[in-house]
Each structure stands twice: as C-alpha cells, then as structure tokens.
Design a protein around this nucleic acid. Sequence first.
DNA 1: ACCATATTTCGATGATTAGCTAAATTTCAA
DNA 2: TTGAAATTTAGCTAATCATCGAAATATGGT
Lengths: 105, 105
Amino acid sequence: MNTVFKALADPTRRKVLQLLRQGPRSAGALAEHFAVSKPTMSAHFSVLREADLVDSVKQGTTVIYSLKLSVLEESLLGFAQLFGLQGGDTPARAADPTPDEEQIR
Amino acid sequence: MNTVFKALADPTRRKVLQLLRQGPRSAGALAEHFAVSKPTMSAHFSVLREADLVDSVKQGTTVIYSLKLSVLEESLLGFAQLFGLQGGDTPARAADPTPDEEQIR
DNA sequence: ACCATATTTCGATGATTAGCTAAATTTCAA
DNA sequence: TTGAAATTTAGCTAATCATCGAAATATGGT
C-alpha cells in the first residue's frame, strides 16, 4: 500500500499506468513517450513492478508490461473509502448529498 | 494534482489526513499520535497545506488543521476515473469486467 | 513587562530518488 | 558464432526528503 502510493507519486509512472490502460506495451514502446533515457524508464518500471501495479512477461528480447488494474483499484479506492469517498459512474451523475459538481475532461 | 500525490506518498501524512477525518485538530493534538519531533510534523503539515489538502486557522497560540475532503476526493477519484474505476459500496461487489452502464442506486 | 505555551523557521545531516552514460545480459537471426 | 536489438545492471551525481535540535515568533495570562 505504501509502495503503491510511492509509485504513484511520480508523474512519469502515473503516465505509464495510463498508457498501459489501453493494453500491454513493451518497455521500449512505453519509453518512446518520454524524454528520459531507457535505463531511467527501466527504473520506473521496476518501481511499478515492486508496487505490484504491473505485470511483466518476457517475449523474446522484449518485455511486455501490463496494468494490474485490480491492484490499483484496491489501493486507490480502498484508501478513498477510508474517507467515505465513493467513485461516481464515469461521466454524468445526479442527485447527491453534495451538489457541487464540476465534471470536466 | 502532482502535489497531492506527493503528499499522499508519505504514511505519516496519510495518517494525519485520516485523523482529520474525525474533525479539525490542533497541530499539537495531531503530533501526539506520532513518534517524530514537532518540527518534523510541522513540515508534514506544510506539505499537506501546499497540496491544498488541509486548511489551517490560527486560534490563539494554536493552529487548527482541518481536512479539505473535496480536494482529496477530486484528486483521488479523478485519477481513479481515468482508469474507469468506480468507488463501490464498501466490501463486496460482483461481476463487472467492463464498466459500462452501471446503475447508481 | 515577563513568562509559559504552541508552532514555525533555521541550519544541518543522512537517506532516498531520478537522472545519466557505459557496460552487461539475453535472445534471435544470419 | 558473430552481431544486432531490447532491456537491465552498475556506478555515479545532483536534487529532494525526512528528520533532528536550537532558536525565533506569536499569543495569552499574570
């Protein structure tokens, strides 16, 4: 749980997770999206693996990373629920105790 | 957003937020729960303030901190929704591989 | 004015972190 | 078996971070 939040503390790693949302990607394919060196990306992957937020399988010379959504969900929502927070269904929603919506994006 | 996740990366700060869930508390009262010095706690409060996760008002010689739940909610659930995650009613929830038209209750 | 209390600022220190280049490793193909 | 490609490991540096004790800054009471 602590490792998850530590992993999420870095914007590069958060963006990697978001890229992975669309499906498994190789280390190299992921690295293309960032302006840092491969070794640096490799270290980021390692942190994500350590936090159990991604799976990695080797296919030939490449390594395919995939998002472990359930782990992200349990950590993120688990923590949110400690505060009584409930996620809403994605785009629109109505009738709430707190009428202060600001849904963007 | 980045400052929020950075703030959440530390267990002490996460626990401070949880203590604050039960209501506003003074810096000293919060500090009592931890085995670190006052200056260290003060630095943690500063990070939480920086992330806009808490409010602080001075009352006499003491400073009262209170949780800004809406900020925590927007960050945490906002990020969760980037992944199609929905906050569920606490423990059990079933059969939902793809989050489509889910009902609100 | 003086003192006690609560909190923060200052200055320092050790640990962790993100970044790099260069080198090692692994795998596959020619 | 030699070589190219993908990724990781090693070794380093600079920056950030959590922590401390001591000092500074309110504030309120006596």
